Simulated assay, not measured.
Amino acid sequence: MTIARSFLTLCLATGLLGSCSHADTKEVVTEEPAADLPYDAVQVTAAQPTRSLSLPGELDSYYQTDIYPRVSSYLKRLHADIGDAVRPGQLLAELEAPELTAALSEALSQLKASQASYSSSRAAYHRLLVTSRTAGAVSPLNLEQAHAKALSDSLLVTAGRAHYEAASQMAGYLRITAPFAGVVTERNLAPGAFVGPGGQTNLPIFKIRQLSRLRLRLAVPEAYVGSIHVHDTVRFMVRTFPSETFMGTINRVANSVRPETRSEQIEIDIPNPKNRLRPGMFATATVPVDAAKSSLFVPRSSVVSTAERTYVIRVKNNRAELVDVQKGDETMGQIQVFGPLKVGDVVLKAGNEEITNEEPLRVELAER
């Protein structure tokens, strides 16, 4: 009897434990709806803009030209090649055109013939003029005819001289000379090539660049156009000489903003007496600019640029307000903006094209 009671008690205890274990495994999982995350926002700040601009540029020759022949001819002889330094008027090449040489000889012959005829008619007129002083020796008609013949021959001489000078000018085109002092940077043709307006190639015979004086061209952003002045000193560096700084002064300002780049071109003349700098080198220039007042800055990510507009999203009364701006200089992740903003305005740290005007927003100020 005692054993049976103990067995029954053990069974009841085992059943209760199983029941409790089963009840503990049934847990109710409830999901709370996630709240909308706030947008990160920052305040518009004011800072003194940089007093100098770092702009990329490219060195170019002060003078450079392609040398083409002016007449159809054959390239006879070359007197210069790539890398040669040339002086103004130096003979670079000789061309050959037999028809031009023949035309020059013909013009010279015609000029000499007209001069001989004029000399004879003039002498005859003077003899008649002297004889006419004796009454009845020469008729007035003969004297007048001799004078007309001398005058006509003198005009033929004038025409012959003009024709000869034109032929001589054309023949002079067979000698190609350097227009200024520089260096031959290209030589594209060899003797025997047919050149000129009717030639088989449009390549220039030579390309000449001036090295003793260079130009540095820079594109200044529109925001700084009013701060650029002629004769301001500009410093620049090139990769070839990374430890050296070169100097020049602003000589020319375009006085026109290019619509495609919203920038104005300036030119700096660079003396290069030792020919260390070369045309085509890239340069990084430091240009001084005025800094009369502070400017507004926002994070670069705050500015939204689309095909239609550039704007930032200002948050006012918990609603989005799309404010059009113009971009200026960038420095350390911040960008200068111009528009109807003021210091302390709250703008989204990361602009988003999907946000519309007057859309409700919840924001939280974040670090810049």
Rank of each mutant, 00 (worst) to 15 (best):
G280F: 08
A292I: 04
Q326R: 06
F282T: 14
A181R: 05
A292D: 05
R368W: 07
R239M: 13
G160Q: 01
A159D: 11
S19M: 11
P33T: 05
F206Y: 03
T286Q: 09
Q326M: 06
V220A: 01
K112E: 12
K76S: 13
T240P: 07
H163A: 13
T14Q: 14
A35T: 06
T2P: 08
L17V: 12
A223R: 02
S61Y: 01
R276F: 08
L203Q: 06
Y68D: 00
Y311A: 01
K316Q: 13
H147N: 07
R5P: 15
N255S: 11
S19H: 11
E321K: 15
P69H: 01
I270Y: 04
P273V: 05
E367C: 15
L75C: 03
V347R: 02
G89W: 12
V343D: 13
A291W: 08
E354K: 15
V86I: 14
V337C: 05
N255L: 11
L189N: 01
G192C: 04
L203M: 07
A148W: 09
F180P: 03
S301D: 15
L141N: 10
D324T: 13
I250V: 14
D60S: 11
Q169I: 08
S256W: 14
R209E: 03
F206V: 00
S105N: 15
S52M: 12
T261P: 12
E222S: 02
D81I: 14
T331N: 14
E244P: 08
G351E: 09
N275C: 10
C11H: 14
Y173E: 09
V195L: 03
Q48Y: 09
L12V: 13
S52V: 08
Y118E: 04
R213H: 04
A320Y: 03
L55H: 00
P242W: 06
E267M: 09
F7L: 11
R87V: 14
Q265L: 15
Q200V: 05
C20N: 06
S119C: 05
K112G: 02
K207M: 01
E358G: 14
S295Y: 02
P33I: 08
